Amino acid sequence: MVIWIVLAVVVLLLLWVIATYNGFVKLAVNCDEAFSTMDVYLKKRFDLIPNLVETVKGYAAHESETLKAVTAARSAVGNSSTTAEKLENENILSGTLRSLFAVAESYPDLKANANFIELMEQLKAVENDIANSRKYYNAVVKKFNVKCRVFPSAIIARMFGYEAKPMFEVSSEAERENVKVDFGTSK
């Protein structure tokens, strides 16, 4: 009788380990999918930036420091090797884009340029998509991180090498402000 009880406990424990492990696998896949979704929108912005820089360059050539900062931040994003590094560099890129928008404010001819207006509309749409995908990514990562930290699933997380994933967070007060992409071009 005791053997059956011990065997039942072992089977139940084994089933719990399997279910918990499978839960981690599903959440990890969801995190990867959420990051990939966000990454698609970040790539769209990444590809849009050279066109934006070139358009601004034609009107504001003496603002080369700002243009160089945007280009350098874009390169840093492209050279990121880890998720955490990419998220940090994306925050820096967002900050340099703010500087570029501030420069553009000083040039009425630039703000009236049809190419610039179209690029800004595209950027506005991409920024909205990025914001939504960041929310989704952070929600999925939150679920994963909670499961990694609560008892008893934290034991399984450690056994199988699951660690908390980085949230997409802004790193400074300046970056907490909205990116201004509307230059009064709407009619």
Results as ranks from 00 to 15, higher is better:
L87T: 08
V17F: 10
I156L: 13
A131S: 14
Y21N: 03
A72E: 15
E169L: 13
A8V: 10
A19W: 07
E33V: 12
S94F: 06
L97E: 06
E127T: 04
E90Q: 12
N79I: 00
V126T: 15
K143V: 09
D182Q: 10
E177H: 12
S133T: 13
S106Y: 03
A164G: 11
S64D: 12
E33W: 00
Y21I: 01
N115V: 11
I117S: 03
V150E: 14
D109A: 13
K57Y: 02
N178R: 13
L110I: 06
P152S: 10
N138F: 09
N145T: 09
Y21T: 02
A8Q: 05
G161L: 10
V29D: 05
L119K: 05
N145M: 03
L100N: 08
E88Y: 11
G23T: 01
E163A: 13
V70D: 01
V141E: 05
V141Y: 03
A164R: 11
E105G: 09
A125V: 14
F183R: 02
V170P: 00
W16R: 04
R134I: 11
I130Y: 07
G95K: 12
I92W: 00
V179K: 07
L67A: 05
D182A: 10
F183M: 11
E63I: 07
Y21R: 03
G78Q: 07
E105L: 03
Y59Q: 08
L15W: 07
E90G: 04
E85R: 09
A102D: 12
E105H: 13
K111H: 06
L52V: 04
A69C: 04
K68R: 08
N91T: 12
K124W: 00
W16A: 07
E127M: 05
S186I: 13
E118N: 15
L87A: 10
K86W: 04
V6M: 12
S106T: 14
V29L: 11
D129K: 10
L13Q: 03
L12N: 02
K142Y: 03
A76R: 07
N128G: 14
V40T: 14
T55I: 08
L27H: 02
V25I: 15
V11E: 02
Y107C: 07
L93P: 04
V6R: 00
D39P: 00
Y107N: 12
R98H: 11
F144K: 01
F35E: 12
E65D: 15
P108C: 07
M38G: 11
V11T: 10
A114C: 01
R45F: 08
I130S: 09
P166T: 11
E65H: 06
N22E: 05
R176N: 14
D182C: 02
K135L: 09
N138L: 06
N30G: 09
I18L: 12
R176W: 03
A157P: 11
M167K: 08
T185D: 14
K86L: 08
V29T: 14
N128M: 10
V53W: 09
T96D: 08
I155C: 03
